[in-house]
Design a binder for these strands. Structure first.
Lengths: 298, 298
DNA sequence: CCATCTCATACCCCCAAAGCATCAATCAGG
DNA sequence: CCTGATTGATGCTTTGGGGGTATGAGATGG
């Protein structure tokens, strides 16, 4: 059976008004129209459905069983209809919706949870979708719209805006029992001859370059032995005694068993930022940036 | 915010078509209209909601986050809308809905469960609402529309139709150990001097009159000692030795402990019928009558 | 039997919405 | 860089659906 694309939700509202008043004249008035066209509307609905919805004998109006059912269903449809309109506005205003937040464990330790918590308090109806990604993929995903925002290292291209979330610096981690583990502080020269574990430049260039530069500035040529892609793996390999690593200091706050953190003399520092597309179609992003700004201050 | 009683489900259909094709021309064609008015429709929706739903740059069409949300919501609304129309037709055709079936335990023993089972197999989407009621209330409830059908004793007024379901007859029940309990069969004369338990004439006149007439035809004046309203109570009082009773034979198929059934000589018989209003607004009633007719035959 | 109330019908009218023609922007290909 | 094709937006014209007024018809109560 091919439906009634003639009938629409306005007709439904008319019917609901009639069903609630059981009076054509008053129902018509409620719909801001006169009674005759209103009667035609109802007749039109019944005609199109091929179903009698109201029993009327010019003195009493009552609902047929089909009419009772249609009333209940119509109320649901209209409520959902209005909710759809309201939701569209809420999403457009950034009060509701989804926000895909990318982050990289290389940078996100500590900052992402705090950011997420604050944001969720401010916008409880925005569902945050967290996606861990490698740093070099983040820019492209932001430009392509696969991410709405991301927490990663500065700096970034002109198509992207960034807000500083925190300033982090490199720290040394070594296996427990390692010759350097007992030191309070070490310099670049002390690192000569030790095997390094670090993400490759194709994954985390900011970190990788900082590590290399730190060595080279002291005339030490760094020797990388393993190059895993994930921050977690780096710490794990260190824990297993396979080498040492220079990692963001925030990572050291939750170290695995068997790994010791040692401060670096004159450590390289870098910004951890919230990056967003210069023009974002998602209205939920702006308040996230605002939260990030406040986070930096307080 | 005062809504958009301008916008209706037809506009929603247009938007969904656009969101699915991402092409104004083709979406318009799907809606059987030309492109210019279609574009105006979409613009109208956005204007009324105050929300941009699609991003268009004269070469590409894409959904905004609000548009994506509105698409999902709209699909739900339209599906529910169509379901409401379909349900109205199903209810009107008697394939779906509710049917309030009244019955009285005085008459319903055995017949109602069978009737209900057969009907539910034929019309699984009709919800049967069973209501036990006293016999004298049934006629009025049927005429008032509080019941769609009822199982009770014949006969009935002209406003009601009835279909015979079964023929039942009176049987004697006495407490175990009662002088009459040992008899195979008893006549009206044997009942003289025994205290009777029966529902009052204001509750079940058919039964009550049959009982009185049975006694009086043999010159015995019945003496009623208790007059409970419910069939269940009658049996219980007999079980407790407070008297004897004449009850429909079908009741005897599931007697409580301590109650013995004894056949009557020339027992009064009466019809148990399915009663329906002569004109019923509920289309689910007709198939019930049909089931009742078949039940009588098979 | 009349007055009244209420829903249906008849008729008219108008503007919202559809169509047509056209413009503007974008892109592909030579 | 130019041209043609594609596609969405805009202006103008037309028409039919939908609304209004007047009136009819059936029911009810005094």
């Amino acid at each position: 059976m091919l439906w009634g694309y003639e009938m629409d939700s306005r007709h439904m509202r008319h019917f609901v008004a009639l069903a609630e008043t059981l009076h054509f004249g008053r129902a018509a008035a409620r719909m801001n129209m006169s009674q005759p066209p209103f009667s035609r509307q109802i007749a039109g609905i019944e005609n199109e459905l091929g179903v009698k919805l109201v029993e009327r004998n010019s003195r009493n109006v009552s609902l047929t069983p089909a009419g009772k059912r249609f009333l209940e269903d119509s109320r649901g449809v209209l409520a959902q209809f209005d909710a759809a309109c309201r939701d569209a506005q809420l999403v457009a205003s950034g009060m509701k919706g989804e926000l895909r937040l990318g982050f990289t464990m290389h940078a996100a330790h500590g900052t992402v949870p705090k950011l997420v918590r604050r944001y969720s308090e401010a916008r409880p109806d925005v569902r945050l979708i967290l996606e861990e990604t490698i740093p070099t993929a983040i820019d492209e995903m932001l430009v392509d719209g696969k991410l709405d925002a991301a927490v990663t290292f500065a700096p970034h291209g002109v198509q992207l805006n960034s807000v500083s979330l925190a300033r982090d610096r490199l720290s040394l981690i070594v296996p427990a029992g390692h010759p350097l583990a007992a030191r309070k502080i070490v310099g670049a020269a002390d690192l000569a001859g030790h095997s390094l574990i670090a993400a490759p430049a194709t994954v985390a260039p900011t970190l990788r370059n900082a590590i290399s530069d730190y060595h080279l500035a002291a005339g030490v040529v760094p020797s990388f032995i393993y190059e895993p892609r994930l921050q977690h793996t780096i710490v794990q390999l260190v824990a297993e005694g396979l080498g040492i690593a220079l990692v963001p200091e925030t990572v050291c706050s939750t170290l695995a068993e068997g790994v010791v953190a040692v401060s670096l003399r004159d450590p390289p520092a870098f910004d951890i930022v919230l990056v967003t597309p210069a023009v974002s179609s998602n209205p939920a992003v702006a308040p996230l940036v605002e939260v990030a700004r406040r986070l930096r201050r307080g």
